[in-house]
């Protein structure tokens, strides 16, 4: 099954797991499965409209999925995805809380 590499700052939301095996035939399905397994990740990856956040980069086997078929890009069982965060030297986006308090 495909695998997703989680960057350090988001590991808080995966119980520290660095590599997560997911189900799905496309990048979008794999990410949905990831956020189903780790619900807290959802708000970090998707905006309120359910779209992938613009500063979240997803790479499939070394290629930016925006240069492939986006979330519709097909996966095979050996696919390796990784989330590449936008980092600014000591800083990194990190949505620690939903400000409305309803997690």
């Amino acid at each position: 099954m495909p695998n997703i590499r989680i960057p350090t700052p988001l590991r808080t939301y995966t119980n520290g797991d660095t590599d997560i095996t997911v189900k799905g035939n496309t990048v979008g399905e794999a990410l949905h499965d990831l956020t189903n397994q780790h619900v807290e990740l959802k708000q970090h990856l998707y905006n309120e409209d359910g779209k992938l956040r613009a500063f979240v980069n997803i790479f499939l086997d070394g290629d930016d999925v925006r240069n492939l078929n986006g979330e519709n890009t097909a996966l095979n069982p050996e696919s390796s995805l990784r989330i590449v965060p936008s980092v600014a030297g000591g800083c990194m986006y990190k949505h620690t809380l939903n400000m409305n308090g309803n997690q």
């Binding site: 500063f55 980069n57 600014a88 000591g90 800083c91 990194m92 986006y93 990190k94 949505h95």
Partner: peptide, 20 residues
């Protein structure tokens, strides 16, 4: 090209609190 826009400020913790 890689990061067309920055994360919204609400999602950015202070550097001092991020640690390195």
């Amino acid at each position: 090209c890689l990061f067309p826009e920055p994360p919204p400020p609400g999602l950015v913790p202070s550097c001092a609190e991020g640690g390195v």
